[in-house]
Simulated assay, not measured.
Amino acid sequence: MAKLKIVTTPFQADGYPLEREALAGLDVEIVEAPAEESAFLAAAQDADAIYAKGLKITRRIIDGLTKCRVITLGSVGVDSVDIAAATERNIPVTNIPDTFIEEVADHTMTLLLASWRRLPESERLVRDKRWGEGRRFLYQFPRLRGLTLGFISFGRIPRAVSRRAAPFGLRMMAYDPFIEEFAVLDYGVEPAPLNDVLEQSDFICMHAPGTPESDRMMRAEHFARMKKTAIFINTGRGQTVDEAALIEALQQGKIAGAALDVLEKEPPGDNNPLLSMDNVILTAHVASASSRFDPARKRRVGQELALVLKGKWPMSCVNPAALEKSGLARWQPISILRGPNS
């Protein structure tokens, strides 16, 4: 039997020991190719699998693959692969949607609490030797219990956030036209139209997946519907928000603040107004980070690659239509996900 070829980009130099755990028993070589379209395609043309990282897997690359069985991502987001092109070629695309739900939910809740209690401003008062002003500063804000938390999209991560938010006494609402309402109600969350969520919420948590359909989903007209006291939180994808509209809403006092782990452009340019706003908390796209994240991610990549190269369905697939014609054997219920935060 010919050696199986997995092509990736030179992103790590450890020999891929964690990915190889699940690949043990298979005669596999992992080939690193330059993170440039033409050079990558030249190396990957005869690949059995693509381990996608650090490079956009375009239609040109996909159309040039002669025997690829799977494109595997070590991330939740799938926006770095042309999913439509892969589906046309019956190539399943896998991601890892369930390896760091808890971390992102923790980070989301941290941003919610820190922004509501104005933690950066309160700390600055202490460091500026203005101790006596701290209590008076917080007198203008109500307590958390009884306020409303609104979710845009209600996949796995927002569901985990709702479990964390419930003990704080928050009323919760969610807009997600792709989820049956009883699945939302089971979490103590009210399903609602988008405008109701925007108009009634004190916090808006953005969890929409990074898909073409959700590109700049949050625009000026949406921020205009929010309460002037509302705080916007995004730990999902930066491209789901019209950042210029968000900046304008913050500058004009249409909303009170924002707490963001993701931005349209990362890292932000030095002239990005968000960097100098006192009512904005920023973190560097780190919500999923923890000591278990990287090992868990790499092992899951190896598992998905091994399953497909052994002729079986993967555990997670973002283009299930490709599976039906892939010739792979279905061995368990597949986890079919809509995108990054499902």
Rank of each mutant, 00 (worst) to 15 (best):
A86C: 10
P295E: 01
V301R: 06
L55N: 12
P340R: 15
I179W: 01
S291D: 11
A322C: 06
Q12N: 04
A224C: 13
R219L: 11
P10F: 08
A114Y: 12
G339C: 05
S291E: 14
D176P: 06
R330H: 04
K56E: 02
R171M: 07
E123L: 10
K227M: 02
E36H: 10
T66P: 00
R59A: 15
S80H: 13
S75C: 04
K67H: 06
V189N: 04
K56A: 02
F100E: 02
I231W: 10
A105T: 00
P142D: 04
M173H: 08
M173I: 07
P177I: 09
L113W: 09
I336D: 02
D98H: 08
L170A: 01
G146M: 06
R163L: 09
P267Q: 12
F11C: 15
I281A: 14
D82L: 09
M206Y: 05
L337K: 01
Q251T: 07
V31L: 13
I101V: 04
A322L: 07
R171E: 14
I336H: 04
Y16S: 01
R118D: 15
K129D: 10
L4E: 09
G74R: 07
N341T: 13
D48C: 03
A224Y: 12
P193D: 04
V280K: 08
P142V: 11
D261M: 10
G74A: 03
K228R: 15
R69K: 10
K254W: 15
I152F: 09
L323A: 08
R127H: 14
A306K: 01
I61M: 13
E221C: 13
F182L: 05
D294P: 00
L323Q: 06
N95W: 00
E102D: 12
R156E: 13
V161T: 02
T94I: 04
I334W: 00
G54I: 10
I247G: 06
Y51N: 07
K129G: 06
P193Q: 01
E243H: 00
P333I: 00
S326D: 03
A86Y: 06
L246K: 13
R117I: 06
M315P: 01
L328I: 05
M217T: 03
D27P: 14
P191L: 00
R89P: 10
E103M: 07
Q12F: 15
R171G: 11
E102P: 02
G146Q: 04
P340N: 15
